[in-house]
Design a protein around this nucleic acid. Structure first.
Lengths: 230, 230
DNA sequence: CGCCGCTTAGGTGTATACAGGTTGACAGAG
DNA sequence: CTCTGTCAACCTGTATACACCTAAGCGGCG
């Protein structure tokens, strides 16, 4: 979901963008590796780009810091966190458990809209196989995430679902570059299975499908980290 | 753990207090119902008390807002959240699950220090029965929480453990006033069972004890909410 | 030629001034 | 007496000025 206004870093002061939109946009850039780990974000620079002052931009960056996506260093700048393998394993283990809880903690009923949305999504995933468009892949992943998010009735769980998704998503996003075929096939299978679960109206099944594919992804990432070092 | 410096709201500008300490102090006040739900916190006032300017105080209040303890309202003030029963039920259900995970996600080994700490705690709990000191009770509860927290190896889980504890703790803290005897007896039983689990070196058991007593507490709170209205 | 120390540029952290929004009190009309 | 409209006080949100910290570059010394 691109912003309608600034986005590009032209010289103009840029029209003022709402607080929440700025937050989502920066989070999106981090997830998409537009800002890869180690990137130095400067409050002033970003503030100028979005047409606000440093104060609200600081607010946003601190929020991202709280979620673990960036880290503010005095006298240096705000740095996009490089993913510490140990800490990251913690998060993945937690996500597995959270996925199992999706269908347990007062899930919302499956609506026809969910099914058609995933059907539509599946069609686009199948088109993706040949194009090798990383961004498009990420957008679709994103989309699936938000559809499933809708099924979570427990508000607290829903927040965590979001938070941790964005925290680890950029990890496997890098892998897409190297093993495109494998990732795409797996993603297509994931969407298919989610669709099957939705048609059965079984939210618990949806959660368990997620759990499994999170585990598969985790395996791949751990393997890559061990091979390629940190 | 009271602060050494300001604490009281005297007229003096107050010595400057470190960022983290201020955060913990305000969180403590909310948990202890020094700031009961609905309390209006004013940035400027708090800033003056702790001897800092509004800017870092805002940072702190926003962090508390992110954790759900307060809510900032433009033109009004920062209000300590009143606990919405539905949202609160969500959190409790989540805590049950998290407790079950304590012993599953790479727990830390039980150290002799943990056992002696809980033994010491238990002795003090037993002294508590006659005194009817609500604050002391809360401090002890707090202490147990932090000891168990130490056993959680998964960093992400540990953070959540903290966060949700402070979010619901003030709910049952109110109950202590009305049904002191029952609460104290239950707490003593809880500490005893935790101690037994620790002596067995079984962190998973510790988690499950927690799970059960969280459930008991939840029951009581829900009953109270239904009886006494919101 | 290499290493150490200083200096300086630029960043975040903090303080303060200003703009926008909300609430409550007060005055006046019905 | 009650209701309503206006206004003023006050609080958060935002913008800007200043202080402190960090790191990198450069120059001098061994």
């Amino acid at each position: 979901m691109p912003l309608d206004q600034p986005q590009t870093s032209t010289g103009r002061p840029a029209k003022r963008v709402p607080f929440e939109a700025i937050y989502e946009e920066i989070r999106r850039r981090i997830g998409l590796l537009d800002y890869p780990p180690g990137t130095l974000l400067r409050e002033g620079e970003l503030a100028a780009e979005f047409g606000v002052s440093r104060t609200p931009m600081r607010e946003i960056l601190h929020r991202l810091a709280f979620e673990g996506l960036v880290e503010a260093k005095n006298g240096v700048g705000t740095i996009v966190t490089s993913v510490d393998p140990a800490h990251y394993k913690d998060i993945y283990e937690l996500r597995l458990k959270l996925a199992e809880m999706v269908g347990e903690l007062s899930p919302r009923p499956v609506a026809p809209g969910h099914i058609t949305a995933v059907e539509d999504l599946l069609a686009r995933v199948r088109q993706l196989g040949v194009r090798r468009d990383h961004r498009a892949y990420w957008e679709l992943n994103h989309e699936l995430h938000f559809i499933i998010r809708e099924l979570i009735g427990n508000e607290a769980l829903r927040r965590l679902w979001d938070q941790y998704y964005f925290q680890v998503t950029r990890l496997w996003f890098r892998q897409v570059e190297t093993i495109w075929q494998e990732v795409i096939e797996e993603f297509e299978a994931e969407v298919s299975e989610v669709l099957r679960a939705l048609k059965a109206g079984d939210v618990r099944a949806v959660g368990l499908v997620q759990r499994n594919f999170i585990a598969f992804g985790m395996r791949r990432v751990i393997r890559a980290l061990e091979d390629g070092g940190a």
